[in-house]
Design a protein around this nucleic acid. Sequence first.
DNA 1: GTCTATAGTTAGATAGAC
DNA 2: GTCTATCTAACTATAGAC
Lengths: 229, 229
Amino acid sequence: MIPQRTLIENPGKIRQKNEKTILDSAEIEFAKYGYEGATIKSIAERAGLPKANIHYYFKSKLDLYAAVLNDILDMWNAAFDGIDIHSNPAHALEHYIRAKVEYSRTHGRASRIFACEMISGAPYLRRYLQNEFHYWVSEKAQVIHHWIRQGLIAPIHPMHLFMMIWGATQYLADAQVQVESLLRKPELAGQDYEAFASDLVTVILKGCGLQSYRKTACLTATESSLEFA
Amino acid sequence: MIPQRTLIENPGKIRQKNEKTILDSAEIEFAKYGYEGATIKSIAERAGLPKANIHYYFKSKLDLYAAVLNDILDMWNAAFDGIDIHSNPAHALEHYIRAKVEYSRTHGRASRIFACEMISGAPYLRRYLQNEFHYWVSEKAQVIHHWIRQGLIAPIHPMHLFMMIWGATQYLADAQVQVESLLRKPELAGQDYEAFASDLVTVILKGCGLQSYRKTACLTATESSLEFA
DNA sequence: GTCTATAGTTAGATAGAC
DNA sequence: GTCTATCTAACTATAGAC
């Protein structure tokens, strides 16, 4: 009786690696075709595994979808939890907007899966939206309110401000084909994202009664914005 | 041999009525579950017709989807073709933004189907985006450019301006559940849309260096904006 | 832990009586 | 023009040999 070699050499490693491969493939397929449109077969083929293995690692298609959504929420939290919104309004808003645009660029697929989930009424994320997400946003809204009371920014419904930022930045990821068509580019480059981020920052800041505190934001923004936190 | 009564009394009327019923039902199902998620069965049940009748009026599921998309484009054109963007910038932008918000409110389902189509890479609307749509937008972009050259509004990439407006307004329709959760409303009312429209108008106008030309925009906006055209 | 074969279900589409 | 019954294909999921 020889124990299986892989188990001795890589305790749990195979599982870890395969689960990651499957999750990545699933993310691509779900983003491209939606939940119903994606099939276990296509996910398996992309992962280079037989169909049955998908079911071995994830009980059902719904389980796999839930795992993908969880991954997406983790990324989202990792990307935005570190934001210190207590600095001055212009800095904080610019930093947040640029981070969000960058997220749309680097995690377009995740963003599109999230959008599909919203469009279909958030059947799997409803609880999350009403609890964790709502609390997180309410906290940030308090900060905006505080700034308004102190006269630091012009009066605006904080949620409306967030909606503008989210709508505009999500649009980059969700309507990517439309954007490419508008800008007449076969594929969007980093510069395109940066240019949009700069215009969005300008409009939001000026729209909130804040002077853009730097004229050359457009060129050096991505690097320098990392130093704000 | 008695000719069928319905054909004599209502030449083509039955077809017209049933096609409309089916299109309406299909729009609801496609918006809720996406193309793959919606089924002929569910559409037929919603329309109160047997499955086979759907195939009688629309050759295939794809045909039906194309018809729904066509309906949506018709509505879109009807809603925005009349906009005279040659008036002064502040008026024109405010009018357009309010019309777009109103469209998100009254045609949320259409907006969501359109969004799904974009997210999946616009397999059926690619041609439209690259031709009719692109020309229409380019024309409007010329107007923005003209305003900028004349010093009427602050410099901004016209496409970026449109993207901000579309992103923010589409967000209302596409992420409706998220918005409801944010604003803690079980259902959005007309006031919620108007309030958002007013904040969006304010931010965009100020962001473009335009003074809001009316302080009480928030309250009387919807009615008065209809008189701009 | 892997993979072939297949069960069980449901989808889109059609034939043919009325 | 309507509708029941049915076909074919594709999907999710599982059983069981390795």
